[in-house]
Design a protein around this nucleic acid. Structure first.
Lengths: 189, 189
DNA sequence: CCGCTCATGTAACAGGTTACATGATTTA
DNA sequence: TAAATCATGTAACCTGTTACATGAGCGG
């Protein structure tokens, strides 16, 4: 049951509505978890029932009303308890890698196209994360910020997200190149 | 429904029993997917019903009998069809990263211990993958093998797994160092 | 003799995805 | 005027995890 803890962790630094949370979790700005809006609305309801977050209604006249949530003391305690339990190992679970596993038996063109698409997607996230990191550390160098900054958790997780997407991009590029060269070699012969 | 395709991809190069498949998917030797034994037994049953794999009973007297599965022509066609559909983006979903997101609010000692544990786990997989890659390419260099080898799919996915675990290890080490130094600084003051 | 490996499954439950539903406002 | 954004939810469905069950042989 880690979604609830991911939500709690996301709400530590700012008060957010379900909708805002959904953007964070859906567009992958959250490098530490991913979830559908529907999951989040449901989880927020449960978290409030369990007293781990509190919501306050914000009336808006130009937009629909919204509820902003923040973590309670009980929520913080729950996060603390969660942190103390052993972490499960994390695994890759990726459609595209499955397809590459079958590379010797399926159409190469399609694979190369999908690798290129994924690479571009990864690059977009790399750029996004670069900007986020810069915003978080302000005028300081990374070393300075990590040594003396106040809220470094989000920065550290963003670094993980950045490295992950760089790994993604590099592997896609390399794999596409390999497949392209083999294709060329086969045609020539 | 990518588990079935992961199973098909895993069975392309060798005939395996449910039990053997489970080891591949469970111990994480499969860098492209992860699944529980129970999922695999169920999926193999379904795949056989759908005619995408065929099983043959192998009678053993010293061990329980087993069923070895291989991909049928229909199975290959299904993989081909799957490869042609757009790949979903892949996301990090990691307990430990959630905990680091909350680093500024929870106990640091526990976090450092878990980062060290994860780092060691990642290193073990790096060593394992290094050996697997060496076995696959034999006496050739990586470049040679990728240019002229026959079955490069598993090699390419193993490279992805390797890079993923290296990213994991490096981030864990860096994060643990950052947290340790801050801890020291706080104690000194 | 205890625990591990081989070998396969059922059943209950928890977690995640997709489709459907609503409705006002802002932007192209 | 069509599409995107803001804002929240229900319900059905598919996927994944955990617990339970069985039973023989092998190694320490």
């Amino acid at each position: 049951m880690a979604l609830r803890h991911a939500v709690l962790a996301a709400l530590l630094d700012e008060e957010l509505s379900g909708y805002q949370l959904a953007k964070v979790f859906d567009l992958g700005v959250a490098n530490f978890w991913h979830a559908q809006p529907q999951q989040l609305y449901a989880e927020l309801t449960r978290l409030e029932q369990d007293g781990l977050v509190t919501g306050r209604e914000v009336v808006q006249d130009t937009r629909p009303n919204k509820r902003l949530f923040r973590v309670t003391d009980a929520g913080l305690a729950e996060l603390e308890r969660f942190t103390a339990t052993a972490a499960k190992p994390s695994f890759i679970r990726d459609d595209l890698v499955v397809k590459v596993q079958a590379a010797d038996h399926v159409d190469t063109e399609t694979l190369i196209a999908q690798l290129a698409e994924r690479s571009a997607f990864a690059q977009a996230k790399i750029d996004l994360f670069g900007g986020l990191l810069h915003t978080m550390r302000g005028d300081h160098t990374e070393e300075e910020f990590l040594r003396h900054g106040e809220r470094i958790g989000p920065y550290l997780t963003c670094l993980r997200g950045l490295a992950f997407e760089q790994g993604n991009r590099d592997w896609c590029e390399r794999t596409a190149t390999v497949l392209r060269e083999r294709q060329g070699a086969h045609v020539r012969h």
